[in-house]
């Protein structure tokens, strides 16, 4: 491709450098990448197998009950209808494969994101380094990760999984940092004034008070993971994404619609569920009711000194 050339600025071959970098990695560390890939593949397959081992009917009952406990009966009814529709359309297996990738990627992303967020909240230097890296991860078009990931890890779940993690990570870090920074300064001072160690302050004050914000971050991670899991279908990861890619290739409008609707059901279910874990929570949920009544009785025991 010809482009306008400047007489002042020399041209640089960033593309060539990255390419030779990836070549060098594959040339020298092929075995390590393959082994890593195999391990991940085994783990994700195990998770998906477990999800598929449960009969769809039973799985729906479990998911609906979860919705009832954590949110409301209205949500439970809605998710029962939506999930049944997924089964009716014959999309259950693909949906569970996608769910597996999303769950796995989310867990890994949160495990990485929260500690980084905590570090960034406590240290300006870390924060200043982390910010541009997150910007890079979030704005670099997702497809760009996919190609080197496929070269390094081969076709299958793993490249999709890894690019999903990279793509979904940033809001987890950002909202953890934000959540901890916006904890009332006087409350943290109270911890210090009573002689709490930094660890006691983090665990007893900052993390609990930042939980709603951190959970909003986890919710974002899940939603990004879901959208990326569909793109991961291009790299050969089984699931709804792969069906959508197929439907585009074959111009199969029907398949595309069915797979697409299933993604929507999964997305809404995961979004509402994680949003209600986020703390503010609705009072209509069974869980909130149970928590309230149990909280009372425990606290009463505390005050009566039994």
């Amino acid at each position: 491709m010809e482009d306008q050339e400047s007489t002042v600025i020399p041209s640089i071959q960033v593309g060539d450098w990255v390419e030779s970098g990836v070549d060098w990695l594959t040339g020298n560390f092929r075995e390590i990448f393959r082994t890593f890939s195999d391990v991940l593949e085994t783990l994700i397959n195990g998770l998906i197998d477990a999800l598929l081992f449960v009969p769809p009917d039973l799985m729906i009952v479990v998911l609906v009950l979860l919705g009832l406990i954590l949110r409301s009966w209205q949500f439970a009814v809605g998710s029962a209808l939506g999930l049944s529709a997924v089964v009716a359309m014959g999309m259950w297996e693909a949906a569970m494969q996608t769910l597996g990738i999303v769950v796995f990627a989310t867990v890994v992303a949160v495990l990485i994101a929260v500690p980084i967020g905590v570090l960034a909240a406590r240290n300006r230097v870390v924060s200043n380094i982390v910010q541009p890296v997150l910007d890079f991860m979030q704005t670099m078009p997702a497809f760009v990760y996919l190609v080197p990931a496929v070269i390094l890890f081969g076709i299958g779940f793993v490249p999709g999984l890894l690019s999903t993690i990279v793509f979904a990570l940033p809001p987890g870090v950002r909202l953890t940092e934000l959540g901890i920074r916006q904890v009332d300064a006087e409350t943290v001072e109270a911890g210090q004034a009573f002689g709490a160690t930094p660890r006691q302050i983090l665990r007893g004050i900052q993390l609990p008070l930042a939980t709603p914000t951190i959970m909003a971050g986890v919710n974002q991670v899940i939603m990004l993971a879901l959208s990326m899991a569909v793109i991961a279908g291009m790299a050969g990861a089984d699931g709804l994404g792969k069906l959508i890619v197929e439907s585009i290739a074959r111009l199969d409008v029907g398949l595309g619609a069915e797979a697409g609707l299933s993604v929507v059901v999964l997305a809404i279910y995961l979004d509402r569920l994680t949003a209600s874990i986020g703390g503010s929570g609705s009072d209509k949920s069974l869980g909130a009711l149970i928590r309230r009544s149990r909280g009372r009785s425990v606290a009463q025991r505390v005050t009566t000194g039994i």
């Binding site: 109270a190 009573f194 609990p208 008070l209 909280g295």
Partner: peptide, 23 residues
């Protein structure tokens, strides 16, 4: 310093600074 804060000096804050998630 933490030892001094635990054993000798406690503090009461303008906006109470209670932990809302605890009883």
């Amino acid at each position: 310093l933490r030892q001094v804060r635990r054993e000798k000096v406690s503090m009461v804050f303008q906006h109470f600074a209670l932990l809302p998630h605890r009883t």
